[in-house]
Design a protein around this nucleic acid. Structure first.
Lengths: 148, 148
DNA sequence: AAATTATTGCAACCGAGTCGCAATAAAGAT
DNA sequence: ATCTTTATTGCGACTCGGTTGCAATAATTT
């Protein structure tokens, strides 16, 4: 099992791209936690650690990481991009509270089954599978009931 | 079973909002097909039918239709919003080809089951459930194999 | 060490979506 | 029917996430 750094370096070499400290800093920061992140958060975290880097470079690096399959987009329908790193993560989906924004990650074995089934039924080679469920958590649900 | 027009009118009345020809034109155009759409497409279709309307009003109307549950967002991760009308549509998910852009809609009874289960497990009141699967269709998959 | 060229940071730019405002027009009251 | 109230419209200006052109920098190859 390769580390994410090794995967990146291999991808760079195979595509005639260059290994730079910026890219490695960004990658390291992404894999420092298992949280979802967006560009601003990532930028802030890097600044706080004293890493000087421009947002443009972060955007460019993220596109690169998407291409080599180290991260993936997560849709929170709030008008900007969110990401999560994939490597070492299991297939999982999100349950998000429309009230407080809490995010529950859950795994569903059926999802894996469904992927295989879809692939066969429609002769598709599946690349990604995103399940985003929205609703109200117990607390927010109760608050809502009162105000309706 | 009410028509979508009736649902809209009821919602407007209940919320002290007004019934306008613009809103009804937009709604009618949305339900004229069962296709997904984005703002530009919708705007174009309305223009072609001789309906004079501004994009700002379309954006505002769509937010309204989202609120009253007549349409929902679909995430194609291409940087802008897509929608589909819900009313009269069954719960369904999308399988999209990353090569040619073909979109297959499919229904999965397991999704409905999963919703109920999630609601119970996490004490969530589920509002929406989006499954977006991406991959390569048979044709594009073959083309890709050759070029790799 | 020199040559080549990918990458960076900056700032200008792009475009989807929003918003303030004056003009218009629904809906209810008289 | 007319008046009053106020939601809605269209316009254009604006916001802001994300992209891009370019000159300077720096990673790799020879």
């Amino acid at each position: 099992m390769q580390s994410e750094q090794e995967i990146l370096r291999q991808y760079l070499k195979e595509n005639g791209l260059r290994r730079t400290p910026e890219r490695e800093h960004i990658l390291q920061e992404i894999f420092a936690t298992h949280e979802h992140f967006d560009v601003d958060e990532l930028y802030l975290r890097l600044c706080q650690k004293g890493v000087k880097i421009s947002k443009a470079s972060i955007y460019r690096a993220l596109r690169l990481f998407l291409d080599c399959g180290l991260i993936r987009e997560v849709d929170f329908s709030d008008g900007h991009w969110h990401f999560e790193h994939i490597y070492g993560h299991n297939q999982h989906a999100h349950l998000r509270c429309l009230g407080c924004g809490e995010i529950v990650e859950f795994e569903d074995p059926n999802l894996t089954l469904l992927q295989g089934q879809l692939g066969r039924d429609y002769h598709y080679q599946i690349v990604s599978c995103h399940l985003e469920v929205k609703g109200y958590c117990a607390t927010c649900g109760k608050t809502r009931e009162k105000s309706l």
